[in-house]
Design a protein around this nucleic acid. Structure first.
Lengths: 114, 114
DNA sequence: TTGGTAGTACGAAATTCATCGTAGTAAAGT
DNA sequence: ACTTTACTACGATGAATTTCGTACTACCAA
């Protein structure tokens, strides 16, 4: 059975977590995992990048400690490490997701009157 | 009188703010401005980089909207745009500063028993 | 007006990051 | 046993980031 390395809680670094969440593609992945229930294979995300680039972004998120990746047959199931992140850096993830929601709302909103 | 451009609240982008705060040098600057009262000239920060690199980091922070820079004679006074950031992305700055404190405490702590 | 102070602008180099295509692999299905 | 699925590893490439030194500028002080 194939397994993947994950940082423990206290191995998580703020630098790495912030850098991971600074990228829009990766933040999209994290947000979707937060919104949805359960876990999700990489292929279900419909990212605007090639498959190999997607692999790179998932690995970056995993190595930062943002997501957990576990093989399930030929698929990899991804889950948000919300509990671990919340324990390590309280409030950070929620603040980022809230900020993301704010920007997303602006993008779809009628852009004020004009 | 020289002036510098700053993004308005609604021009602030999450991408840019997170990228600005992901860098350790820049996060140090932001944290120091948060801890200290009043404003501070660039030269007072004692950063581990050259003067021109420091200029680059201050500009990056300003263009992200994290700090405000205003000329005062030949000096530039820097202030944290806490109110603006809090209005734009509530809780984000505080979570980052709290996380930074946690890591800083670990670095100086006796690294548990061994 | 001459000098010092506190910064910038510019160009260059080194590094890191994001991207891709191709080729490969482990597990599952048939 | 063969094929398909879902992904990875590797190498390459171009873009962005971080770094620096040198030269410059605006302002202040003597």
């Amino acid at each position: 059975m194939r397994t993947l390395d994950h940082p423990s809680r206290d191995e998580m670094r703020l630098d790495t977590v912030l850098a991971a969440l600074a990228d829009p593609v990766r933040r999209t992945v994290a947000c979707k995992l937060n919104d949805a229930f359960g876990d999700h294979a990489c292929a279900t995300f419909e990212l605007p990048v090639s498959k190999s680039t997607a692999t790179y972004h998932f690995r970056t998120l995993r190595e930062a400690g943002v997501i957990r990746q576990e093989y399930e047959g030929t698929k990899i199931m991804n889950t948000l490490r919300k509990d671990d992140l919340d324990a390590r850096f309280p409030g950070l993830l929620d603040a980022v997701f809230a900020a993301q929601d704010i920007e997303r709302a602006e993008a779809t909103a009628p852009e004020s009157r004009d």
